[in-house]
Design a protein around this nucleic acid. Structure first.
Lengths: 340, 340
DNA sequence: TTGAAAGCGTTACCAG
DNA sequence: CTGGTAACGCTTTCAA
């Protein structure tokens, strides 16, 4: 009696298979008494409705795809995943994860084979510099396509993205308004590639500085360092090599800011005493560290994206399909007014 | 022509549906020419084999369940997930994640409703203080049950766990062998609850100290602090309240060690100059920080667990069903010989 | 409120 | 190498 099927249950409960089915999926159509009996028997026989059969019958797959350019283990990706999961799982969906769609080879493989075709009810594209041709390919699977932090909404049925440029501009403005004069932006393509976000953030910094320069004296610069696992050390060297150490440092992400603070401490540069620094993300350890930073909430973005997907799947109407969210400045302990 | 089914493809290719099916799943049984034709047509019609139908027919679900006591976003859980995913995804399985099986309520709900019954091909239990009765319930779904960092292997078909006690013992021994005399173990149930690991690690520390005390003078103690989001600050206060500041600190996890190093710096205590400290996990920022720590590799554990599950699903034999792995001491910059 | 039967899209056996 | 056909386990009319 390894596996009882719906017939076994029907027989044991003295009803038809239709009734067994209804007892599970439309309990209100079955008399209290019959239902209890059926569910009882089912429990005794370790029976449950088969998702595969339900899926087949209904024409839905109860599965969604999530595309990420790199590994799920970065802070951003994990949070997005958790957010999507928290909505989709209770709704009965599995998430089929496609990571590392980053090299030319994996991209081609994915977008030409399109393994998810006819096998998902929606597609999420997370923080992914997807190109228009690829979106076009995706559309061929004829399901809603929802983006999270995507460079362009073209071809997407819905999306939610963070305003990277505006956020970083706000961060720089904060530093400037504190009175700092020498302000530096260490910039690299990080190991954990955030794709287009990196560029947008740099633009925000530059914009804030240019705007401020029109009004007052400001010595600002972008310090470009090579990407790779040593990007923090590269930034550190570049910073230390400056003629004059800056009053303020604006970082593209907390993963840059946090190690920098630690390492600078060892070179006798202490924040906020000697310099102000602000991060971006409000990710792991930022709170522990007391890092002043721009907060974004990728988990909430995941949830919002999932809500949209669900509505799209059910043919409902979306209020606004495409959303932009503003990161928030979180003041903690690494910024202080300029004191010459 | 929204959705073409197997019949449409068969017709368009001038073959039977059997041949279409075989062209996809048993290409070697179909002539090169026919196969190309079929795949061509299929691609043109945006057709693909339905996983639901295949699953139904085969009696498999192509889905596994992963149970975690808390959120997926902790370092350990993310890595385990990524490890399992890297093996199961290519093998054609989706992962159905069940998080937050931690309160009495969610546990009861999960283990009595057993929503995964008949709907997964295997179950993973990750870092989960599951009780014997719950395991018994799980067995009722009649699929392989594979554990990762579980307190007891009872009822599990396979497992892989880290030797927390042995690892922490090794960490403490290292500190002792460096000649340190006053050694402290700040201990709390962390926010990100690692369940039984916490206890095992404390035991390892105590054991090392007791063993060493028999041989030489050693002033050691466990500093218990309340759990909660402020556990690091609690540990910090406790440490600073000591009559004499310790030579060495042994931490239950990097999430304790790293913020501690940072905060102690602000109180003028600098490592390795003033004290040695070793963490546990080798998780985020440990390398950046130069933290000496005990490394464990949860991603590799996830992979190993998934390999076992796959073999079990396919009815193959496991060499050794239950594995224990030893964490490795990674020497970096936060330990130094005792210098009075 | 319940039962009978058709059909969802495959796969696999058996013929040819 | 290819085609016909019977399941796989459910849901859903339609009748009773």
């Amino acid at each position: 009696m390894a596996k009882a099927d719906i017939h076994d249950v029907a027989k044991a409960a003295g009803v038809s298979i239709s009734t067994v089915s209804r007892a599970f999926t439309r309990p209100e159509l079955v008399s209290e008494k019959t239902r209890r009996k059926v569910l009882d028997v089912a429990d005794r026989l370790d029976f449950n409705i088969s998702r595969s059969a339900t899926a087949l019958k209904s024409g839905r797959t109860n599965r969604v795809a999530l595309l990420m350019n790199e590994d799920i283990s970065s802070w951003f990706n994990t949070e997005v995943f958790a957010g999507i999961e928290s909505v989709m799982h209770p709704a009965g969906y599995d998430i089929s994860l496609f990571q590392h769609i980053d090299t030319a080879a994996t991209r081609r493989e994915f977008f030409t084979d399109l393994p998810i075709r006819r096998n998902v009810d929606a597609v999420f594209v997370a923080s992914f510099a997807i190109d228009p041709h690829e979106v076009e390919q995706l559309r061929r699977i004829h399901v809603p396509i929802v983006g999270i932090n995507i460079p362009s909404t073209d071809g997407f049925d819905a999306s939610i993205s963070i305003d990277d440029e505006g956020g970083m501009r706000k961060a720089a403005q904060h530093l400037i308004s504190l009175g700092h004069r020498r302000i530096v932006y260490p910039c690299s393509e990080a190991v954990e590639d955030m794709g287009a976000s990196i560029d947008a953030r740099a633009r925000g910094f530059i914009r804030a500085c240019e705007e401020a320069s029109a009004r007052r004296d400001l010595d600002w610069r972008v310090l470009t360092v090579p990407r790779g696992p040593e990007f923090v050390d590269s930034a550190l060297s570049a910073l230390l090599a400056l003629d004059e150490f800056p009053d303020a440092i604006c970082c593209q992400m907390d993963m840059m800011a946090i190690p920098l603070v630690l390492k600078l401490e060892r070179y006798g540069r202490s924040t906020p005493r000697d310099y102000s620094i602000v991060g971006f993300d409000d990710s792991i350890y930022a709170r522990e560290m007391g890092l002043t930073t721009m907060r974004q909430d990728p988990r909430a973005m995941g949830r919002a994206a999932a809500d949209k997907a669900l509505r799209l799947i059910n043919g409902e109407d979306l209020g606004e399909a495409h959303e932009i969210v503003e990161p928030q400045l979180v003041l903690r302990g690494t910024d202080a007014p300029y004191a010459a």
